[in-house]
């Protein structure tokens, strides 16, 4: 990071800001935010928590979570499937790996290890709390999963990967949790449909609350706090899905070199 680089960077930033402000003052390029929102956004904001109109509401105080899991739920299920297929692709590239146990005393110095023993359980607690209150405050399933997977990544960096093995994080168990949680999301999405087949009423797939022509609904009050039905269960299952999947990828990328070399030698004898 020499002095020449810093001077070029600062002058580049000043040039960009000066040219754009000169274009604004001369009324050539004027980009301003509008005074009114679009009608589609107004209808989403109005009907997301609306106890006076029972056919279009979803009882969630967080409008973005209601849009992601209730009004456009099919997009989110397919996005989870894209994440799943990326993990399967990585598993295919690194086949035939064997884990080696045996704890060794490695890692960074004592000054770094001591505070991180306090911080790492707190990170997981923050993740769980973001997942459970996803329909009332900012948060949700994917945010909680991303926050909670920083903890195993820090353990790999500060301590060693054998510490992670000693805490019982195996690759096969993580992949199993990931698949079971994804199957749970699919089961909840068709649960009201199966309920209607058994009791002979009318219900749709991916339905959350009362809609036209059907009267089935998921639980929407928890003593005195609004509970948005299937959004609550989706958030918890998405947290488990993302946490298990991303930790699995981090373990595969940072294993010891001996394990993967045995796979490479096997492949070369085939060709």
């Amino acid at each position: 990071m020499r002095k020449k680089d810093i001077i070029i960077a600062i002058s580049l930033a000043i040039m960009v800001m000066a040219i754009s402000s000169a274009l604004y003052v001369g009324r050539f390029i004027v980009i301003t935010p509008p005074y009114k929102t679009r009608d589609l956004a107004k209808s989403f904001l109005k009907y997301s928590y609306n106890p006076w109109n029972e056919e279009l509401t979803s009882y969630a105080l967080n409008v973005v979570s209601a849009i992601i899991w209730d009004y456009r739920g099919l997009d989110t299920i397919l996005e989870t499937a894209v994440l799943y297929s990326a993990i399967i692709g990585i598993t295919t590239l690194f086949r035939g790996v064997i884990e080696i146990r045996g704890l060794r005393h490695r890692g960074l110095s004592f000054l770094v290890k001591m505070p991180s023993r306090i911080i790492i359980p707190l990170i997981i607690a923050v993740g769980i709390s973001l997942a459970m209150y996803g329909h009332l405050t900012p948060g949700g399933g994917f945010q909680a999963g991303a926050v909670a997977t920083v903890a195993p990544a820090l353990i790999i960096t500060i301590f060693s990967i054998e510490t992670l093995y000693a805490l019982k994080f195996r690759t096969r168990k993580l992949f199993l949790i990931r698949t079971i949680a994804f199957a749970g999301i699919l089961v909840i999405s068709i649960s009201l449909f199966l309920y209607s087949l058994v009791f002979l009423t009318n219900a749709y797939i991916l339905q959350n609350m009362i809609r036209e022509n059907s009267n089935a609904l998921m639980p929407h009050w928890f003593v005195d706090v609004p509970l948005a039905g299937s959004i609550f269960f989706y958030n918890i299952l998405e947290f488990l899905t993302v946490f298990a999947g991303l930790t699995y990828v981090f373990i595969i990328y940072s294993m010891r070199e001996r394990e993967v070399e045995s796979m490479w030698r096997e492949v070369e004898t085939y060709e």
């Binding site: 589609l40 956004a41 989403f44 849009i67 992601i68 990326a86």
Partner: peptide, 17 residues
């Protein structure tokens, strides 16, 4: 506007994968 934030959340997830 809340609709754009939902689209950008999906884009962040797919980009990371």
């Amino acid at each position: 506007d809340p609709l754009l934030q939902a689209l950008v959340l999906t884009a962040i997830v797919i980009g990371f994968a």
